[in-house]
Amino acid sequence: MRLLDLLFPERRNSAVIARDRLKIVLAHERASRDAPDFLPALQKDLLDVVGRYVEIRGDMLPVNVGKSGDTSLLEINVEIDGAKVKPVKNGAAAPAAKVTFPARHEHETPAPWVKPG
């Protein structure tokens, strides 16, 4: 069947493709529709924390809410680039209080519990 599809791509059942496309699009849209309002703020905080150790961009840390049966799941995937690990002083993870934000964060207000400087 696969071979046939390859040889005659126009023969593929387009209704099945339509159904699959819809399922994917709607799964995304429903997830963002039902998402709690705090997700963007949570993502920003997580980026700040992870960003102290590794260079990371927003699209490398998606935060979603999903469902598995009756259980709501908070799904956080962190993709890191091993080559862009930031140097850590004293061989241990820098404690939160001593952290200075990288330049790109300086104009932003830090989370309220982080002492400035």
Binding site: N13, S14, A15, V16, A18, R19, L22, L26
Partner: peptide, 16 residues
């Protein structure tokens, strides 16, 4: 067209 697989069926739309 549904039978030819060219159109979403009523079952598909109902399920979605």
């Amino acid at each position: 067209r549904v039978k030819k697989g060219e159109m979403l069926s009523v079952e598909d739309v109902k399920e979605i």
